[in-house]
Write a protein that binds this DNA or RNA. Sequence first.
DNA 1: AAGTAAGTAAGTAGAACCCCCTATAAAACC
DNA 2: GGTTTTATAGGGGGTTCTACTTACTTACTT
Lengths: 218, 218
Amino acid sequence: MIKIAIAEDHEIFANLMAESLEEEPQFQVKINAQNGQDLLNQLENQDIDVIILDLDMPILDGRDALSIIRKKYVDTIKIIILSMHYEELYIRKYLKSGANAYLGKGCHYETLVECIEEVHSSGIFFHDKVSPKLIEELLNDESTIFRVLKGEPLSKAEIQVLKLLCRGHSSTKIAELLGRSSRTIDNHRYRMMKKLGIHNSMELMEYAIVHKYHEPSL
Amino acid sequence: MIKIAIAEDHEIFANLMAESLEEEPQFQVKINAQNGQDLLNQLENQDIDVIILDLDMPILDGRDALSIIRKKYVDTIKIIILSMHYEELYIRKYLKSGANAYLGKGCHYETLVECIEEVHSSGIFFHDKVSPKLIEELLNDESTIFRVLKGEPLSKAEIQVLKLLCRGHSSTKIAELLGRSSRTIDNHRYRMMKKLGIHNSMELMEYAIVHKYHEPSL
DNA sequence: AAGTAAGTAAGTAGAACCCCCTATAAAACC
DNA sequence: GGTTTTATAGGGGGTTCTACTTACTTACTT
């Protein structure tokens, strides 16, 4: 039995989806939330397998909900983004941000069912329309869903360096502190960024904050 | 009437201080908290002028409490740090972090009284033992207490640039977005760092977070 | 009318970062 | 035991940041 949460502000659509999914013997819709905040509250008391998440909602939208959920539940809950905008740019963005699948609202009901099952069992689902190029890119991108699926991607040394970087230290300073070559520190940073798919220290700091490696100074 | 809050985990000391201060006609001790969390909770329901803050406390120490209070109440509440460690290094650090005064626990009672009055009226107090050099340095340092006293030190353009920097954009990218020269953006960033007394983008991001200019992406 | 602050932009230069590659030894995993 | 990952560190090169300066314009203030 796959336990499902729906977060969708268009009630008619949400209810229709809930009713249809309830009829499937393998599904059980346990949450039907109208916004992200509502979803987060209900998640506290429910054991959910898959979330069907609308991006555009009032109060707390799917974008924010996604990052909060990924921060809190890491990889235990699968998330399917259900959006009006079905464009490669968005698909890439949200799959890189921790979603397990991305569907356009124009997709067929059968696709949704298949998607829920796939996402629940294997952790990832690509719609037929997603180009092989993008699939290839995402599968080989250490920063995407596989990061979530594989858990913590950073090594101990990398985390140590990350924390020091967050305190505003330069490579050479960190090298001194740790008794290493500055090239080693450079290398650690480079590999972290490579893994995480980011390209500058600001985004690295952002990652550190989300993943609680950032220890506020003072 | 100056309304005072005391945050100090050594109860005997806290109570002694509270009783003595209460005897002064111009003071009223409204909060006597044992830790930072306790202090923050009580601050919600009280109108306080001056906080006497111990650095070493359980649950939530003075270091963290200081930054939280500065974030929340900005410059309406004056903060006196009361610490066991009376060293220039610490004095510099905490005064730069938003405290209005720094006293060692070895100071005389009269000094405390004078300090509370000074801090309440003028916003800053230096103990006799603080070296003129340090006073000079702090008074001329745009990153210290005067930042708090003067309110927001960043201009609109600077804040706009700061927000974009936090999203991980480079100077050239921001220049494109805003229709400015990249040298202008460089200059804004440089002047922000100069004002705030910081030296790299990580610390800039930290400032942005504390001052709520950082808008978490996605 | 003079003074002050903000916004714009450019010059110069060294430090630090970012990118990618190679390579070796140890540790961890299967 | 063999494979993969991690930690280490160096080469080379382009880009960006950091630091400090000067300078002109606009706008608000006294």
